[in-house]
Every structure is written in C-alpha cells, then in structure tokens.
Design a protein around this nucleic acid. Structure first.
Length: 752
DNA sequence: CTAGGGTTAG
C-alpha cells in the first residue's frame, strides 16, 4: 500500500521536474547512461554530482553506470540512499548484482521488493539459471502470468541450454508460440558453449534465419573443441562478419600458437577497435612474444585498462618484474586487475613485501586480488599473515578457502587445515584434493584414504590428482588390496593415461612388493617421463633388486632420458642396499661431474649409508664434513645407524647429538644412543641420556601399525586398549614373538 | 534508467 503511494509521489515529482527542468534532467540522465556504458565511470560520477536537479531516473541511471563498471558497493549505497525508489530502481539494482555474479544478493532484493514486473521476473530467472538452480528458475517461470513473452521464455531456454539440459531446452523452445532469432541463438549457444559441435552443427543447419551472432557462435564453438579447420571454414562463409567474428577467429589462431595467421587477420580487419588491438596484444603475450606485444601496445591509438593489464601480465610472465612495475606506475587509471597481475608477479618470485605494498595501495579489492595475496603468503609458509588477511576478507569464495587449506597442509599444520576444511559450506574437487594431498604429504595415510572414501559418499568424483594422492597413500601403507581397488577405479574413470596417475600406480605396486605389476605398468605407458623411470628404479631399489635398478638406469641413458636428482637417490640407495660400494661412489661422482647435479642432503644420506654399511665410517664422516650444504636428520641418522652396526661409540655420540638437534622429541634416537652406552657398560652415560630425554620432553610416541584384511585397512595404536579385540591380539602377538624366537627370526624390537 | 542470445580482450 505505502509503496503505491510512494510511486505516486515519485511520479508527481518527476512530472514537476519535467515542467521546470525537464530537458536539463533528461539530457544529463542520458549522459550518465552513455558514460557508464563506455566505461568512463569517473566522468559519470562528476556529471551526477554537479547536477542541480535530479529525479529517480537520474539515480537509476547512476546505479546502472556503477554496476557496468564493477562498482557494486557504490551502486548499493546509492540505492539505499535514494529519496524515492520506483520499480526500475529495484530492477536496476538486481541487474547490478546479476551482472557482477552476486546471485545471492540479487535474490534477497527480489524477495524484499514491493511489486514485481516482467523485468524483475526475467532477471531472477537468469539469476537462478546462472547459479545452476534450474528447478527454482522453472518454478518462477511457471508462476508467471506472461510466461510466453519471448524475452522471458528465451531466458529460460538459454538457462536450460547452458546447463546442458538440451532436451528440456528444446521442449520449451518447440512450445514457444513466437520464436525470434534470440530464441534460436539461445539454443545454439547451449551446444557451442558446451563443446557439442555435432549437435550444434545439426541445429545450425535447421535454422531458418541466422545472423552474425549465430555464425560467431559456430566459429567460437569449433575453436573451443580445437577444430581450427572447421572454425576457419565457417568464418570464411560469414556473410557480414563483424569485429567480434574477426576477433574470435584471431583468438582461435592465437590459442593454438598460430601467431602469424593471427597477425594476418589483424592486418586484414576492416575495422580495428580497442578489443581487436587488445586481442592481438594478448595473442603475442600468450605466445611469449612480449616485445611484439609492447610495440603494438605503443602503436595503438586508444588504450584501455585491459590493454595495460595485458602487457603488464606479459612482462610478469617473462619474469621482467621491473618493467612490469614501470608500466603499472605509468598507467593512468590503475585498476585491480593490473595491480593484481603485478602482485601475482611478485608472489611468484617470493617478493611478498613488494606484493604487499601494491596490495595496500588498492582501495577496492576484488576476490582474485585477496586470493593472490593469501596464496603468496601461504606459499612462503607465512600462514599467520595469510590467516590475518583471510579473516579480514568480507567476500570469500571457494578459492580463498582452498588456498588456506592447501597452505596449512604445506607447512604441516594439518589440524588447522582440517579445521578450515570442515568450516567450508561448499567444497569442490580442489578442496578435497588439498585435504587429501596434505594428509598424504604429512604421513596421515590412513586419514587420506578415509577422506578419499568420504569424498565419494559426499558425491564428489575423484580426479587425476585425487587418484595420485590415494595411490601414494596406499604405497606408504603397503595396502595392496586397496591400491588394486583404486587401480580399478582409475581404469573406469579414464585417468589411466595421466602420467601422474601411472607413475603413482607404479610406485604403489612397487612399494607393496608387487614388482611384476609395476614392470607391467611401466611397459604399458605410452609416453613416460623421467618420473616414470624414477618410480621403477626406486621400486627395484626398495625391493632389494639393486642390479635391476642399475640396469634400468643404463637403459634410461641409452634411450636418451636425462636422469634427475631423484633418479640418483634411487640408484644410490640401490647400490647401498646391495653393497655395491665402488659402483655407488662412481655414480655419485658421475652425478656431480657428468650430469652437473648438485648433491642434495638425500644423496649424502645415501652415501653415508653406503659407506657406513661397509664400515668405512671415517670416510662417511669426512664426506659429511666436506659438504657445501647443511646436514639434516637423514644424514646424521644414517651415520648413527652405521655407528650402531660397527660399534663406534665416539662417532655415535657426535652423530646422535647432531641428530637430536633436529629431532629433540623423537624417542627412538635417545633409545638407540642409550642402548649403545649400555652395551659399552657406560651406565653413567645411560642415565645422562635418559635425563636429557626427559628434559627435552621426548615421550614415547605411540606407534601406529596397520594391516589389510578383506580389502580394508585396519589401524592399530600400540598399547591401544580401545581396540575391540585387544586382548585376543596381544595373545596372538605373544605367541608369534615366541615362535619367531624359536625359529631364529628376531622381531624388530628385540634388535634395539 | 531495468529483463533474453552474441561482447570477442586482461
């Protein structure tokens, strides 16, 4: 009721202004609309602010101008502060949200608005279909009194078609009493944008009337599926190609590296607008011709913010950060996209302080900008700063959440990662993969597999990354049966050809001791990479088949595949396991001299192990002392182990002390040292080590063990009374230990 | 001033 009155008042006031200042207001309203459409938002604001008389239409025009330039919060502020609102004001604000992908806000406004018209309903239907909520869109559509209005109907057809509901779209399309060109093109868009070019072509031939949009859709559709020949064939047949047609074809060439063809098109174009110039510059940037991009940028008559952003991105891609920064500084109206490109450049080069400086300059930041910054901090391991920004963010999207999960996982803070993951309202495949890969990388293999299962229950299908992580977890658990099941799933899913997956499969079979399956898989791979070779080499090394590992290494050299640092970790450990001391030393030398690979801590650990096992402790120690890099726990652990075997107490003490600097909480290190002291009868030292252990707060870490039974992985915590069959288990274990003692097989813990 | 297809470029 009150709204009707309000509308009347608004009507009266606008009639009044027509009388007194009519042409003045009308002129300026039009100006605002034009400036808004052409991207000159600052000019539009100036006109708005200087107007002496404004009416509701003035405000509505300004809302649309803001919306078209991404200034959604300004639009809303204006909407909220308007003296009077009519139905167009509401519709314009809903449209503003729709065009800025803020479907939820649009819906809230739609629910609140006092009266609705055809515009409102059509807007909302589009909102729902953009969000994939087709049922809700259809419900609205069915309620409409004027649903056979072609505009409204087209919105529904387009919604179905874009969401691959071709049958529903077609049914509605066929039922339409009055079809226009947009109706036909709406259907066609569904096919071409979804890569269904067979159906698209069929439909295109059915069309009684076509315009340049229809043709452009076909050209772009063929580009999308990588069929450049058909694309070109259609492009040449377009009766009156417009700039969009030319640019679409140009981009098609650029995407497939045909830069000369793209340039030829650019030169032949009858009209070159800013978009065309930008497309050509982007074509050069995509194909790493930054110099050409720059010279074209200099030449172009009129530059917009996209032109600047493209060349800045070009420099960033080539790692020329200073040049990029210079351009950014020269840019007349710096926008978020350009600034974000710069931030992303700094982030990639771990220059977080420079990135932060740019970030702080930006007044209105978008999600991408925030996410880039957060990703930068998490990739640098600065999770506190990442979290600080994350909490400050008002509008987070799924990428923001995923970045945090991955960041915490990377620095080993899995509790924090899980907490963020569980707080997520919406999860996608990346969210799950971040969690599962985090669990795998941090040694929680069982939880990784559990999450893999849970993901399936929640309706998310695994992709190549999920499979690679799941298989890696199986490898570490030596869970052959579960691994085989994953293999089955991989084959059904069609990811068998993925190199990461194939390599993970090889490693899984190898670590589960099924070396023949690993070999079989290796033979089946079409295009292997160095990782495939490494996987099988490591497989042989792990299974004590050092000679086979070395043979494979030779074969790899014969086939011209350059080994990398991981390859050498594999073959050096193979040599160590089999006791090929001289061979190992030779290969180590060869790695440095012939392959120019700087030895990593892992390589030194292998060498220490190799020399240590052979009793050449002094040599091993000299090797460690001569290293350019810092020693790590692996190296000192290997040395300590060797000292243990050969009873060198002095060196053991030294190695143990170093080792405890890295792993002060690991009980087994103290136990090893204490046992050695005990064997030597140094009881005072034994007591000292025990004391040290208490001081450092090292506690006995519960040992997890696992076993596969009937295709399920069962986990056991040592001294776990909670296990339903603990008593039974202990009984069996005791008899097994006794049996092993009798037969001479010593259980592991008796060796310590 | 607000709604449907196409807007190709960052």
């Amino acid at each position: 009721m009150s709204e009707v009155k309000l509308a009347e008042v608004s009507m009266k006031s606008s009639l009044k202004s027509v009388g007194e200042h009519g042409s003045y207001v009308f002129r300026h309203n039009l100006k605002i609309t034009q400036l808004g459409k052409s991207g000159q938002i600052d000019e539009a604001i100036k006109v708005f602010q200087h107007m002496t008389h404004k009416n509701t239409v003035t405000h509505n025009s300004m809302i649309s101008a803001f919306a078209k330039n991404g200034r959604i919060s300004d639009a809303r502020q204006l909407f909220d502060g308007m003296p009077q609102r009519n139905i167009v004001s509401w519709n314009s604000m809903i449209a503003a949200y729709l065009h800025n992908d803020m479907v939820e806000e649009a819906r809230q406004l739609f629910d609140k608005m006092p009266t609705r018209d055809l515009y409102s309903w059509t807007l909302m239907i589009t909102c729902y279909t953009r969000n994939g909520e087709l049922a809700k869109a259809r419900n609205l559509f069915n309620l409409l009194p004027y649903k056979w209005n072609p505009v409204c109907c087209n919105a529904m057809v387009a919604g179905y078609a874009k969401n691959r509901q071709f049958d529903e779209a077609r049914r509605l399309f066929d039922a339409m009493p009055a079809k226009d060109l947009v109706s036909w093109n709406s259907m066609l868009t569904g096919y071409t944008r979804n890569g269904e070019m067979r159906l698209g072509l069929q439909f295109f031939e059915e069309m009684t009337e076509r315009d340049v949009v229809s043709w452009n859709l076909m050209v772009d559709g063929f580009v999308e599926v990588g069929d450049l020949n058909s694309s070109w064939e259609f492009f040449e047949k377009i009766p009156n190609p417009n700039t969009v047609s030319w640019v679409t074809m140009l981009c098609g060439f650029a995407r497939f590296g045909k830069i000369a063809e793209a340039r030829r098109l650019f030169d032949q174009m009858p009209i070159r607008n800013v978009v065309a110039w930008n497309a050509m510059i982007a074509a050069y940037v995509q194909n790493c011709h930054v110099d050409e991009a720059i010279s074209l940028f200099m030449e172009m008559p009129e530059k917009n913010s996209i032109s600047w952003t493209t060349v800045i991105n070009g420099y960033v891609r080539m790692g020329k950060l200073d040049e990029a920064r210079q351009l950014l500084n020269q840019m007349p109206y710096r926008n978020v996209a350009a600034q974000t490109a710069m931030i992303s450049g700094y982030v990639q080069n771990k220059r977080m302080d420079d990135a932060r400086q740019i970030f702080n300059q930006i007044s209105i930041r978008d999600v991408v900008c925030w996410n880039t910054m957060i990703a930068g901090y998490s990739q640098s391991g600065r999770m506190d700063e990442a979290l600080h920004l994350f909490k400050q963010m008002v509008k987070k999207n799924i990428v923001s959440w995923n970045t945090m999960v991955a960041g915490y996982a990377q620095v080993g803070q899995m509790d924090a990662a899980i907490k963020i993951f569980e707080e997520m309202k919406e999860k996608n495949i990346v969210s799950w993969n971040s969690l599962i890969s985090g669990l795998t990388q941090n040694g929680s293999y069982l939880d990784a597999l559990k999450s893999f299962m849970l993901m399936g229950h929640e309706g998310q299908k695994p992709d190549q990354s999920t499979f690679a992580c799941g298989l890696s977890a199986c490898a570490h658990l030596a869970a052959l049966q579960v691994g085989k099941q994953l293999h089955q799933l991989v084959m059904k899913s069609g990811y068998v050809t993925d190199l990461f997956v194939s390599n993970a499969l090889i490693t899984m079979y190898a670590k589960c001791g099924s070396i023949s399956s690993a070999e079989l898989l290796f033979k089946d791979i079409d295009h292997f990479d160095v990782v495939s070779w490494n996987s099988l080499i490591a497989a042989y090394a792990l299974n004590g088949n050092g000679r086979e590992a070395l043979k494979l290494f030779q074969k790899m050299e014969v086939e011209g595949v350059a080994p990398d640092e991981v390859t050498f970790v594999g073959i050096l450990s193979a040599c160590s396991h089999v006791g090929l001391i001289d061979q190992g030393l030779k290969l180590f030398k060869c790695m440095v001299q012939a392959y120019n690979i700087e030895p990593l801590a892992e390589h030194y650990a292998c060498m220490v192990d190799l020399l240590g096992r052979a009793g050449r402790l002094e040599e091993a120690f000299q090797l460690v002392r001569g290293m350019k890099i810092n020693a790590n726990a692996g190296i000192w652990g290997a040395l300590l182990g060797a000292c243990r075997i050969h009873g060198n107490l002095e060196l053991a003490k030294f190695a143990a002390e170093k080792l405890l600097e890295f792993e002060p909480h690991k009980t087994s290190n103290y136990v090893l040292l204490s046992n050695m002291q005990a064997e030597a009868g140094r009881w005072d030292e034994v007591a000292r080590v025990r004391r040290l252990m208490k001081e450092k707060g090292a506690e006995k870490q519960p040992g997890w063990s696992w076993i596969e039974l009937q295709n399920r992985v069962h986990a056991f915590l040592s001294e776990d009374p909670a296990h339903p069959r603990a008593v039974e288990l202990c009984h069996i274990l005791r008899s097994l230990t006794a049996h092993m003692r009798n037969t001479g097989d010593m259980p592991l813990e008796c060796l310590l």
